[in-house]
């Protein structure tokens, strides 16, 4: 029952962070609609390699929508047109025969391009380093049942904790803001009794680091939520705003 389609890809090619990039067009022929987007890129890359041309660099690892390594902007949309889906889980049945797909990397000052579609997201790691953890040492923990956590709080924490750190929120935000990512982590930890203890310091440090990395400011555009493959809600951003407003110095 497999259906195949032909596509034109207009792909951003850039040798490195310091080099100017440009678009190049490639044909992707006889693409099975059961393929994932990355499998389609694999096929194109195999073809390029055989022609002796530099294959398109793109990040990926798990290919099941959980590691957060993949991602590109397809026709202006981070992770492509399907909501709640990473690029690796996006299947070609979402596209029509004869379509042209413009494929670009995440574009943001805080995510410099490494090559082609691969970008450097270490700024996210530095934000976590600034406070995205609970300071407990191995062995210090009391029995798991020492603290009961209400189901509603546990669920809200889990909703936020699902963030895969892919950076699509930044790519989609018209301001290149990392608010959804930061708010998801802060909410996950601050809402739980275990994490509330150092909640004030956490939120101040993480937001300060976020600013330092050169991410933009939120102006409540909600593009991030729409692009987020885990559909992280912007109510986390509201929560972050409250945590920060109330944080004692």
């Amino acid at each position: 029952m497999s259906v195949t389609i032909n596509l034109t890809l207009r792909v951003w090619r850039q040798k490195g962070a310091q080099v100017e990039g440009h678009f190049e067009d490639y044909k992707a022929s006889a693409i099975d609609t059961d393929m994932s987007f990355l499998e389609m890129l694999d096929v194109v890359n195999e073809g390029l390699t055989k022609e002796g041309k530099d294959p398109i660099a793109f990040d990926h690892d798990c290919r099941e929508g959980i590691c957060g390594m993949c991602g590109a902007v397809v026709n202006g949309q981070a992770h492509g047109p399907q909501r709640g889906t990473t690029l690796c889980q996006l299947h070609m049945r979402n596209f029509k025969d004869g379509e042209t797909l413009v494929i670009e990397p995440w574009r943001s000052a805080a995510f410099p391009v490494i090559k082609d579609l691969a970008v450097d997201r270490s700024s996210f790691d530095r934000i976590i380093t600034s406070g995205g953890f609970i300071s407990v040492r191995t062995g210090q923990a009391p029995d798991a049942h020492a603290i009961a956590v209400g189901k509603d709080k546990a669920e809200l924490a889990m909703d936020a904790a699902q963030c895969i750190g892919c950076g699509a929120c930044v790519a989609a935000c018209p301001n290149g803001a990392a608010m959804l990512f930061v708010s998801a982590k802060v909410t996950h930890l601050n809402i739980l009794p275990q994490g509330a203890v150092e909640g004030d310091i956490r939120v101040r440090h993480m937001v300060t680091q976020m600013d330092k990395e050169g991410f933009g400011n939120c102006s409540n555009e909600y593009e991030c939520e729409a692009a987020c493959p885990k559909s992280i809600s912007v109510s986390n951003i509201a929560r972050l705003n409250t945590y920060l407003r109330k944080a004692k110095v």
């Binding site: 953890f133 609970i134 210090q140 923990a141 996950h188």
Partner: peptide, 8 residues
Amino acid sequence: QCVAQGVP
């Protein structure tokens, strides 16, 4: 340990 770290 994991609960103390905030694993939900």
